[in-house]
Structures are given as structure tokens and as C-alpha cells.
Design a protein around this nucleic acid. Structure first.
Ligand SMILES: Nc1nc2c(ncn2[C@H]2C[C@H](O)[C@@H](COP(=O)(O)OP(=O)(O)OP(=O)(O)O)O2)c(=O)[nH]1
Ligand SMILES: [Mn+2]
Ligand SMILES: [Mn+2]
Length: 361
DNA sequence: AGTGCTTGCCAC
DNA sequence: AAACGTGGCAAGCACT
């Protein structure tokens, strides 16, 4: 109602097409950009730009979108999908991705919210059975460690040997906040910067992501490649390998096909090059957790633990166990996951125990 | 009423 | 949005 009042006209807030016409035609707001299909762009980074200019309706639409997303995709849908015993059972697809990751459907339990305060309430709704706890075990900075290994980057390997947190360091350097007591959303934003840069983001893309100028974004990217010059070599070598073979390999031998690597259309070719750069690392991380998942059920049984492995979220495993064995499960999961493979950097796993998924982080 | 596409956004 | 990568889902929309 407030959005419609501020817009001065009745329309469906849930329609990006109508919203774009209201904002950039009826209201004549500045900064409108049409996409390739001629529609006005209205995604959150566009709205954020408007909101920063004091356009109240933009902030209200962002708030509405967030709540609508959480309600429709999670709150309403998960209740319908819940079993008679109150559990939801996902389906894992084992061959749906190009990199070897799993995917999860009906419902997708690999994209349960966590980032915002309201979203985190949904994650907290996943609770252990009475007398049981949930144990989460998540690899630390997993694809950055694989990058250090595969691209053979001395400075990055040294950081991991010392136990440094690169995501937190990036957050500190870019946002000017202290490492100590950093909040999770800030570290998450830095994560997107680190992975964006290593997977070929442009100054334009980074600027858009951070809401800064392209010149400032370029400074960050240049500084990154200066600090870790081996990343460039890894990118070039991987692209060349893809051109030669039509595929790239993870450090454990998985083939990831890159069919458009020789496309004559430059934009499609550039896209394929970024896919080639990403696949060995994302796929390598998938290989590692899969090996751990093969070992774990037997390792648990051998240790006399009745815990069950109940969910995989790309580099995280979630277990359910009786309260009195939860800490033993956490220790065992950490050890098996850390030792699932041996590479030239240490693998570290963070574990947590709680009565709900949110509390287990 | 059903289908397929687009836009946007949740997670890793 | 052409301009980090990997996914899945909901809603709007055009069309049958
Ligand atoms: N390209 C890309 N990959 C991502 C992004 N977010 C997550 N990933 C990939 C790379 C991560 O290593 C991997 C696991 O995600 P996590 O959220 O667990 O982050 P990570 O392990 O790096 O850090 P952590 O120490 O667990 O907080 O998923 C992203 O924004 N872009
Ligand atoms: Mn992780
Ligand atoms: Mn994770």
C-alpha cells in the first residue's frame, strides 16, 4: 500500500515490468537502464542506487521483495512439503551440474536463508528431534584453498598455513572494519568479492555489486592480481587447456566440459572462459566433500555412533545425533572431512552444535 | 487450465 | 546488463 501511495498509481508490485514502467516512465526517475529485451532493469542493485538518492519507494519495494521471497519460497512452501512427522525430505540430483556439485530439489534445501535477520529465522525453524542435536561441519574458505593449491600461490599457501581468514581480511581492507568482532553479513560480502575477482569479475561488475565507482573497483582488482600474480597464470593456462581439449580437469581428475570455449561470439567465448576458470575449483571442492561423504557413514558406525548424515550443502554436512554423542560426531566429522584428501594446503573444517540449524553454525 | 519463457533472488 | 561461477523456485506474462 505504501509503495502504491508513493508511486501515485495502482499497480502490481510483484511485476518487474509494471514496476519499471512506474519508476522510469510515470515517475521519470533517473538512472533507468533497459535490458536486452527492452525491459527496465529493477533488480536490487538498481533499487539500492535509487534508495541512496533518497527515493523512498525504492527502499519500500526492496523490503517488500525480501519478505515476499521469504514467505513464498520458504515459509509457505516448506509447510506444504513437510512430511506427517514434520520432516522435509529433499531430493539430491547427482548429475545436474557441470562441475560435479550436487543439486537439491523439491524442496531445495541448499538455499535456505541465513544472510538477513529475517531469513535466519527460517533456518532456525529446522530443528533436531527431541533429545537430539544438529551438527554442522563446513570447510573453511574451501575454493580459496583449492586455488592456492592448484595455482601454486606461495603467499596464499602461507596465509593458510598460518590459519588466516582471507574473507575477513578482505572485508577489513575493503570496508575498513576491524577483523575482530566482524558480523557475518560483512564477511559474506567480502566472500563475494574474493570469489568474484578470482572468477573474472570486471571492474564494472564489482562496482555494481558493491555500489561504488568503477575506478575504485578497478583499484581493488588490480591490487588483488598484484598481490597474487599466479592467479593470472592459472587463468591463462586453464583457458588454454580448455581450448586444446574442450574440457578442464579438477585436481582429482574430474572432467568438466566447456563446449563454447571457441565460440566466435566474443561474449559467449568470454563466458566459457570464466566457466573454465571456475570449474576445476568448484568441481574440486565437490570431489573433496564427496570423498568425505563416502567415508563418513562407516567411520561413524566404527566409532559406535548412531548419528546420521542428513544434508549436504556443497561444502557443509549436517548431522543429527543424540545429545550425548553430538560432540563426538563433530570431532569425527571434522577429522574425516579435513583428511578426506591431502593437498598442499591444510584443509580446515568449522563445526557447530545446536538444537536448530541456525544455532549449529 | 497448462506450458514455456523471463525476471528476480535465495544459497553455496 | 554482456560484463564472477554453480544451482532451484516463485511469480508475472504471453500464448495455446
Ligand atoms: N563464484 C562464487 N563461488 C561462491 C560464492 N559463494 C560461495 N561460493 C563457493 C566458493 C566457496 O568456497 C564455496 C563454499 O561456500 P561457503 O559459504 O562455505 O564459503 P567458504 O567455504 O569460502 O568460506 P567459510 O570459511 O566457510 O565461510 O562455495 C560466490 O559468491 N561466488
Ligand atoms: Mn565453507
Ligand atoms: Mn558452506
Amino acid at each position: 500500500k505504501d509503495v502504491i501511495r508513493l508511486a501515485g498509481r495502482e499497480f502490481n508490485v510483484g511485476s518487474p515490468k509494471q514496476l519499471g514502467e512506474i519508476l522510469f516512465e510515470t515517475m521519470q526517475l533517473p538512472g533507468g537502464k533497459r535490458g536486452k529485451n527492452g525491459a527496465w532493469g529493477t533488480d536490487s542493485s538498481v533499487l539500492e542506487g535509487l534508495a541512496e538518492q533518497g527515493i523512498e519507494v525504492a527502499q519500500r519495494v526492496m523490503d517488500w521483495r525480501q519478505l515476499a521471497k521469504l514467505k513464498s519460497t520458504y515459509s509457505d512452501a516448506l509447510i506444504l512439503q513437510a512430511d506427517a512427522d514434520g520432516r522435509v525430505h529433499t531430493n539430491f540430483s547427482m548429475a545436474a551440474t557441470t562441475t560435479g556439485r550436487l543439486s537439491s530439489t523439491d524442496p531445495n534445501l541448499q538455499n535456505i536463508p541465513i544472510r538477513t535477520e529475517e531469513g535466519a529465522r527460517i533456518r532456525k525453524a529446522f530443528i533436531a528431534a527431541p533429545g537430539c542435536s544438529l551438527i554442522s561441519a563446513d570447510y573453511s574458505q574451501i575454493e580459496l584453498r583449492l586455488l592456492a593449491h592448484v595455482a601454486d600461490i606461495p603467499a596464499l599457501k602461507e596465509s593458510f598455513s598460518k590459519g588466516e581468514d582471507i574473507h575477513a581480511r578482505t572485508a577489513s581492507e575493503v570496508f575498513g572494519v576491524p577483523m575482530a568482532g566482524m558480523d557475518a553479513p560483512t564477511r559474506r560480502r567480502a566472500k563475494a568479492i574474493n570469489f568474484g575477482i578470482i572468477y573474472g569479475i570486471s571492474a564494472f561488475g564489482l562496482a555494481r555489486q558493491l555500489g561504488i565507482g568503477a575506478a575504485e573497483a578497478k583499484v581493488y582488482i588490480d591490487a588483488y592480481f598484484k598481490r597474487y600474480p599466479q592467479i593470472r597464470a592459472y587463468m591463462d593456462n586453464t583457458k588454454e587447456q580448455a581450448r586444446i581439449d574442450g574440457y578442464v580437469l579438477t585436481p582429482f581428475g574430474r572432467r568438466c566440459w566447456v563446449p563454447r570455449i571457441k565460440d566466435k561470439i566474443p561474449a559467449l567465448r568470454a563466458y566459457a572462459e570464466r566457466q573454465a576458470i571456475n570449474a576445476p575449483l568448484q568441481g574440486g571442492a565437490a570431489d573433496i566433500i564427496k570423498r568425505a561423504m563416502v567415508k563418513l557413514p562407516e567411520a561413524l558406525a566404527d566409532a559406535g555412533l548412531k548419528a546420521r548424515m542428513i544434508l549436504q550443502v556443497h561444502d557443509e554436512l549436517l548431522f543429527e545425533a543424540a545429545d550425548d554423542e553430538a560432540s563426538a560426531v563433530a570431532d569425527l566429522a571434522r577429522r574425516v572431512m579435513q583428511e578426506a584428501v591431502r593437498i598442499s594446503v591444510p584443509l580446515t573444517v568449522e563445526t557447530g552444535i545446536g538444537k536448530n540449524w541456525g544455532a549449529a553454525h
